[in-house]
């Protein structure tokens, strides 16, 4: 199904834009070869209908992803049982790690490769349904001063990450992913942007790992700083909502200070989340424009439309329907859960298609950019919130 769907176009430049399921093999052959490029016998492909060919790999995606979910739940249960404060490492990272281990040790069996390649389809389905969790109406609940702080944080985070990424000569799409991840909502934004700008699996894995690792550290550091500065619940909650990138960690870091701080952290964080559509849309247009420029095409509007990731429109429509109150609370929960299951398959696929030697080739520079960038953003947002609190106290 995926192969059939991906062959639609007549422009010669399509190879640069085609889904990675059809890209030329990269990296180590045993991990990057497509199902038809390995030279080995492909028993399932002969005569089997396309939907049968994707079944084994889809089962592998589900198994690896579910193992990640069990790992997250088991660690949480162990921490609760032993009254330990363990960092909440989400299934996302576990699924990627387990997938990495499989693909870079025993390798993905040839019979599973077509199914594993469907991860991009699940990614896009998950993103469209993710729209149900991002209400545009949340923006108005926060108040003018806080909204200005959110807008400034978006601009500062994008500028800082872009400047640092360029200074350290990171690949442009990795810079985009780190900028989006640090400015909006960590993993969800990176997921959305990965599809929209067609970033490599390695770049997405690196950006997600950096954001999640720093999110875990923030749980321990932020409350200490908040108490040291004698911040009010509202100011601290706003700061956490602005500076911590992943929603789960922002909620926890806020609640560790106080209940009120937790509520403000969630509100500020949801406001940042609500901007995901606009920022990803902007980056998608930027990269579509860059492709049009590189290809030297005449009708840019038609080219932009052709290259524009249409599923982003689906995301915006679902978000608008949710904002309009079309869904009940139960329906929102159901659709959000469908989205999570789709991402579970997606991240298993990201891990199964990520080449460790390719990650190692990028070295420590992306991690340095991530750490330095996040620290700079945390300091700037802290100064911003303290200044706003003083001005309006």
């Amino acid at each position: 199904m995926v192969t059939q769907m991906s062959t639609v176009t007549t422009l010669p430049v399509v190879d640069a834009r085609r889904p990675s399921t059809l890209r030329e093999p990269q990296g180590r052959p045993e991990h990057r070869r497509g199902a038809t490029g390995s030279g080995r016998p492909q028993p399932v492909e002969r005569g089997a209908p396309p939907w049968v060919q994707i079944v084994p790999g889809t089962i592998l995606l589900a198994a690896v992803g579910f193992a990640g979910k069990i790992a997250e739940q088991s660690i949480g249960a162990y921490g609760r049982a032993h009254q330990l404060t363990l960092p909440n490492i989400e299934y996302v990272l576990w699924a990627i790690v387990f997938g990495l281990i499989v693909s870079n040790t025993v390798g993905v069996p040839a019979v599973c490769r077509k199914g594993v390649d469907t991860y991009e389809f699940w990614l896009k389905v998950g993103i469209v349904l993710l729209g149900v969790r991002f209400l545009l109406g949340d923006v108005v609940k926060l108040g003018t001063v806080s909204l200005v702080c959110v807008a400034l944080e978006l601009a500062v985070a994008i500028l800082v990450m872009t400047a640092l990424g360029r200074a350290f000569r990171l690949p442009p799409k990795l810079i985009s992913l780190l900028s989006i991840g640090s400015s909006i909502c960590g993993v969800s934004a990176i997921i959305a942007a990965k599809g929209a700008i067609e970033a490599d699996d390695e770049d997405a894995s690196y950006a997600i790992a950096a954001i999640l690792a720093l999110g875990a550290v923030s749980l321990f550091v932020f409350p200490v700083i908040g108490h040291a500065f004698g911040m009010s619940d509202q100011a601290y909650g706003l700061w956490v909502g602005l500076a911590v990138d992943n929603t789960a960690e922002a909620t926890a870091a806020g609640a560790l200070f106080s209940d009120t701080a937790g509520r403000f952290a969630v509100l500020a964080k949801t406001t940042r989340n609500a901007t995901i559509g606009f920022v990803v849309l902007g980056y998608a247009l930027h990269w579509a424009r860059a492709r049009a420029r590189d290809a030297g095409v005449g009708n840019k509007a038609a080219f932009l439309w052709e290259k524009f990731p249409k599923f982003v429109l689906g995301f915006v429509i679902v978000s608008a329907l949710a904002t309009a109150g079309l869904f009940t609370r139960g329906e929102v929960a159901d659709l959000a859960n469908v989205s999570r299951w789709a991402f579970l398959l997606t991240f298993a696929g990201v891990g199964l298609r990520t080449n460790v030697s390719e990650l190692a080739r990028q070295g420590w520079r992306p991690l340095i950019v991530g750490v330095v960038g996040e620290c700079v953003i945390a300091v700037i947002t802290l100064v911003m919130v303290l200044a706003a609190a003083r001005a309006f106290s």
Binding site: M1, M5, S6, P19, F121, K124, V125, V128, F311, G314
Partner: peptide
């Protein structure tokens, strides 16, 4: 006319919305 992967994803997500909204599918666990 063949649909691109993007549109297939939108169609699949739309189907999920219809199934949940109509009540055919509900209480999806996580």
């Amino acid at each position: 006319m063949r649909l691109s992967l993007d549109w297939w994803a939108v169609v699949a997500a739309g189907l999920a919305v219809v199934l949940v909204k109509s009540g055919i599918v509900s209480r999806i666990p996580w």
